[in-house]
Design a binder for these strands. Structure first.
Lengths: 154, 154
DNA sequence: ACTATATAGTTAGAAGGCTAATTAAAAAGA
DNA sequence: TCTTTTTAATTAGCCTTCTAACTATATAGT
């Protein structure tokens, strides 16, 4: 009876590794396809920030944004600077805390977010039609549970 | 009755967007934490290739590896060159196809993969213990279904 | 009040990813 | 057979992300 080469050293918790592997491969696909659809060279990171700000409609600091997206502060500095260079956000000093800044979305930023949404909509609709919404409704809570755990135990 | 700011422009297929969003945030967390655990500055991409080659025990070309991980060929060229520089793989010409190359894992590569696995094992066990394997067993087929769709429709 | 610690943001440097373009070899077609 | 198209790999240039280190401000502790 031939053994699989993998048996030499067993994979620990194979399902979990498989899960993370599947995650990484899908994220690769999603990011690439998303950025191909987004208008005006908008990246996933940039769209994420614009969308976040419109949806939550709040004044947030770069540090708060970094935390929301689970990226480092230098990464978020970079992202909001790119958005500022495109005129999609404004970055102003915090009124009372001299260390902090506040990121504000501009009218152009809101318009760009709407343009991006319009570009994305058909693709999302197609995926929803092909796979059904149920699969996503089932998956989201599972993903959230894992994310929350990783978030709390790092 | 106050409306949520998001209502100005509705998110198309909110569950699907939420799914992709959750995916991106978790992938960020996973990659960062994984690379903090991996030994000798091994990256997720590098470990992925080593692990893939041991598990499948096959001679594969850079193009096949790129396809397996859903990255571009230039990205895989970069990764295997980094592995070659560390002495973890060998890259030899294909016997019959003058365009192709074959990536072979070295003894050092196998040893490094085992060292990495040993480093990863406790973390995976802890996650499994905290969340249970079931959540991953439920999630993997869902992720696969979405991945296969994206893969086939790009 | 003064010192020490923590927090916000940035800069520098490295890694991985992408697309576009280049080179070389194989396969297909006229 | 000769030309055209496809495929494999690489190079160049850009973007995002990371960690480490630095500056400046705020908070805590003595």
């Amino acid at each position: 009876m031939k053994e699989n080469p993998a048996d030499q050293v067993k994979m620990p918790d194979d399902v979990i590794y498989h899960f993370f592997n599947e995650l990484g491969i899908m994220e690769q696909l999603v990011t690439t396809q998303l950025e191909r659809i987004l208008p005006d060279g908008l990246t996933k990171a940039q769209f994420g920030v614009l969308n976040h700000m419109v949806r939550l409609g709040r004044r947030e600091s770069p540090a708060e944004l970094a935390s929301a997206f689970q990226v480092s502060r230098p990464s978020m500095t970079n992202t909001v600077q790119k958005l500022e260079a495109k005129g999609l956000v404004e970055i102003v000093p915090h009124e009372t805390d001299g260390r902090s800044k506040i990121v504000l979305i501009t009218n152009a930023g809101v318009a760009m977010r709407e343009k991006a949404l319009k570009a994305l909509m058909p693709q999302f609709a197609q995926i929803g039609k092909a796979l059904g919404q149920e699969i996503f409704e089932k998956a989201v809570p599972l993903l959230q549970a894992v994310r929350v755990y990783l978030d709390e135990n790092r």
